[in-house]
Design a protein around this nucleic acid. Sequence first.
RNA 1: GCCCGGGUGGCGGAAUUGGUAUACGCGACGGACUUAAAAUCCGUUGGUGGUGACAUCUUGCGGGUUCGAGUCCCGCCUCGGGCACCA
Length: 813
Amino acid sequence: MNTYNHKKIEKKWQEIWEKTKLYQVDLEKAEKPFYNLMMFPYPSGEYLHVGHGYSYTGADVYGRYMRLQGMSVFEPIGYDSFGLPAENYAIKAGVHPDISIAKNIEIAREQLKSFGCMFDFEKEVVTSDPSYYKWTQWVFLKLYEQGLAYQKESPVNWCPNCKTVLANEQVIAGKCERCEAEVIQKKLKQWFFKITEYAERLIKDLDQVDWPESSKIKQKNWIGKSLGVEFEMAIVDHKEKIGVFTTRVDTVYGMTYVVIAPEHPLVEAITVKEQKKAVEKYQNETQRLAEIERQSTEKEKTGVFTGSYAINPFTNKKIPIWIADYVIYSYGTGAVMAVPAHDERDYEFAKKFDLEIITSIVPKNKQKAKGVFVEKGVLVDSEAFTGLTSDEAINKMADWLKVKKIGGSKITYRLRDWSFSRQRYWGAPIPIIYCPQCGTVPVSEENLPVELPKIENFRPTGLGEGPLASVETFASTTCPRCGSLAKRETDTMDTFVDSSFYYMRYLNVGDDREIMNKKITQKWLPVNMYIGGAEHVTMHLLYARFVAKAFYDAKIVNFPEPFLKLRHQGMILGPDGKKMSKSKGNVIIPGEVIKAAGADAFRTYILFMGQFEDGGPWNPNGLSGIVRFLEKLWRLFDQEIVNAEPNIEVERIINKTIKKVGQDIADFKFNTAISALMILVNFLGDRKIQSQRDLEALAIMVSPFVPHLAEELWEKIGHLESVFEASWPTFDNALIQDTILTIAVQINGKVRDQILITPGSSQDEVMKLARESEKVNKYLANSTIIKKIYIEDKLLSLLTDNQKCRSFPSKVQ
RNA sequence: GCCCGGGUGGCGGAAUUGGUAUACGCGACGGACUUAAAAUCCGUUGGUGGUGACAUCUUGCGGGUUCGAGUCCCGCCUCGGGCACCA
């Protein structure tokens, strides 16, 4: 008798899979296409995280199950190799990213292979490869053609010490991640995608997709749709008008001042001579503050009076105009009507600067005020609107503003346009040429890719422009339109542009002429199942949806939503229950576990730990239970094998397990699927003799979790083809039905006995059986049954007039 | 502050539409096998009381609805995640 040798088995089957190209799908001919996508890794160095192993094995179990269901499953993988993590790793290691990336991809690929997933490694994408980023640039051109890419001066994070622009991800608590200097805001010309134009559709189309509800909510909150009213206010002695946006126009009679953002263009025009100095000083101070610090709610309110006054169109009263940094320029109109009586922030400000506070809303009759500020209520001291409820007033006031032609209803979103230019080296160059004659000229498609030059000094320059700007051979070019000397754009693209379309590219790897093949794309897209971390909900997943929609509008693709189903894996924590990190020394490396116990054990254990979407702490002890289970499974196939002779008990558990495991995998409840398999294996193990047919069903059922072991067992019972060429066993519902059921008998709400019944028995039949129970009779003694409740095949509940049996002393009192 | 999601044995965790709470696994304890250990197998394992059959309590806390609540409702506590002066 051989013992289970995971090393030998796993090596053997991985080689066979590779040789037979088992996991390669004919994209053109596949009849039942199923695109099983998972978020590709950043090969930023060292090891893949245990989180990758978790995500990929869960996704792979699902993919293998779909394959056994008869689908042609396409399960590609690639490397998100451009971007800051890769570049920072290269800087730290002192190697050119080109070299470190190549090495890291090789390491990552070996690790990915060790997980034993159905990856088709011949369809890999590498985003930093010119054959890939040619299409990243093409995506840019298509968005540019649609008017969805534009340039604008915008404040960016600037580290005064490193003298460089930083991405948001590099700003940690307002400080530079490297030198810890305070990051400030600096205005630079940046490229943006007009994602805000799609805000409404990005919300609405979430109805079409099967995503976790919490992720939909997260995206909706991020987009932040807000229904309100916008209106203009005249300024005393000025032609200009101030526009304000508010969701609470019903409080307008309580407006006692106006606040505009310090960087608002109106500030200069309306500031009076005497206030000029103070205003400019304040503007400079604000600019120096990091956005993070500026937006801190803990910060005390600051601001300066402009010296001018606005007119409240409802009251015609004169009110002062202030500037303050608690108003955000990029949201709404960058100016607000301040109602200190009904807004906490305005209240704080008014208190500090001694401004008037006027109440214009009182609570409805019974409504409780939350703190000092009433929610919506009834209007007071509001002339014609007095007595209306807040909601009525909001509608009437909007109408009134519309009639007056100074405003009306307005929808505002919190979402900002996507700033995607980076003053960094390791990214796809933006394919734009600046010509002194023709202006901004996009590089034509046939001249793509604009290759990233291999340069020695790829570090950030600190001049507010990328390292490419100082590469003369790159930056200088000729205008494709008029031929005169011109300059290239030297910023590169955000790595989220790379990942916004990679799922399209997997389907056409190797084709240099088109981003996608129409026929294949129509067959395979949108993606059927997408699996990855929830941390990408408001970034990658939003960007990818936006790009798909832009492509849909440009008729490049025929679907508005790229990912029909989405599931997230939870986070695996260290054995100490804390987030894994090198400094805490609690990092679990999947490779070590695989080496010790095998990929099959790793896969099964990590999925057995708990619910896939929950994650949880890694328990170093639990693995042994899985190893035992696999060894038991192995031993089953060494027992005497006979041809199936029907045994109802065995039939029943086999059929039950087929049903349960299939359903559980489809629902991503891997832990309970494994539990059901354990129960079956324990049951069969006790029988000593196995039937060929049962072992076949078992081998198929365990195969998604333990693909290598399953192949070996499948071979052992006489099969020459892969177990993954087989089909998921069918179950017979009739065989699942138990012939005898145990149900509970409750008396006055307490379970008093259990009785055996035939399924489908009537209440009278069950009652008769209950009467035969000694215990039941004991509790029914000296009392009359006043009510019977029978839930078929579940329980019988009896109530008596004698409540003495009831043990609720509190109720008796 | 706002928005999500949790809180069940010593531990990871199970529990269809409200219907026998603690499946499965780990650990622990006892036993078999062994010169011994490992491995394997068998048994016990929520708390309290009792030799015992049994009784009684138990799903973060406090109320409620119900014949019946881990599950539904109200009010809290607490942990994790996201957003954060968004008017």
